[in-house]
Amino acid sequence: MFLGTSSGAGKTTMAAVYCRHLASKGVRTAPFKASNLSLNSYATSEGGEIGMGQAFQAWACGAEPSVEMNPVLLKPSGGRMQVILRGRPFAEASVGQDPDTEMMAAEAFRAFDSLSSRYDAVVCEGSGSPAEINLLDRDIANMRMVRERGIPAVLVADIERGGVFAVIYGTWRLIPEEDRHLLRGFIINRFRGDPSLLRSGIERMEELTGMKCLGVMPYADLRFPEEDSLSEGRGRLEGGDLRGAFMDNLDELLEIARESLDMRALDRIAGG
């Protein structure tokens, strides 16, 4: 599970990169995001609607996008929120008035279990930050999945605006103590400059939290469709063949990831 310390931290992309990594090693892999708040959706071949990010991640796996990869999709429009369950419009709610959490959670677990039974690996992506203490009881996409399915998790933190150690530490602190053992590592994303400057901070963070630093990803001006998508996209894929361009970018990024991250450690974490 890739959890972000904020929206736009880079978890969609990191999950896609990891999907690509596993697929290239011949592991049958599927992406999964329990619940997605997004305006951009993709129509699967079964005629269901899922978040665009999961469609791209599926292609990264060499898999066909399916509604189980994103069982709950919330599409805000005006003051309303369209709730899409298993690819089909289910209800409309006004923003702020949340649809039934338990029902959505049940959908999510069912979809996740079905994917796990059919694939060797399921690469999960969280939603927003897992440490929104005002939303904890309604959050199904982050710690609830992690806890109830025992999924090992990795934090993805964006360093671009600064405060990266604070947000890694703060996220870890706000996760209930009994769940923290599932937080296994962190990735510092979008760094410009010489990563050795960060070393002392990283060591301190590893000591304080017991999480392992899996590496520092350099700033790459590649942005992928969609990530908590209410934020404006920064950077865009150009050209007509979006999917082809995306795959090229992703392969480039995978190269970078293999140079910058400890992929073996990531594999070990993913392996349980």
């Binding site: 929206s7 929104e132 405060g163 947000v167 530490y169 703060g170 602190r173 706000l174």
Partner: peptide, 15 residues
């Protein structure tokens, strides 16, 4: 605006 505000706040303070 970007989410993670509570984590940023608590982490900053405690570090």
């Amino acid at each position: 605006e970007w989410g993670g505000a509570f984590a940023y706040a608590l982490g900053t303070l405690e570090l």
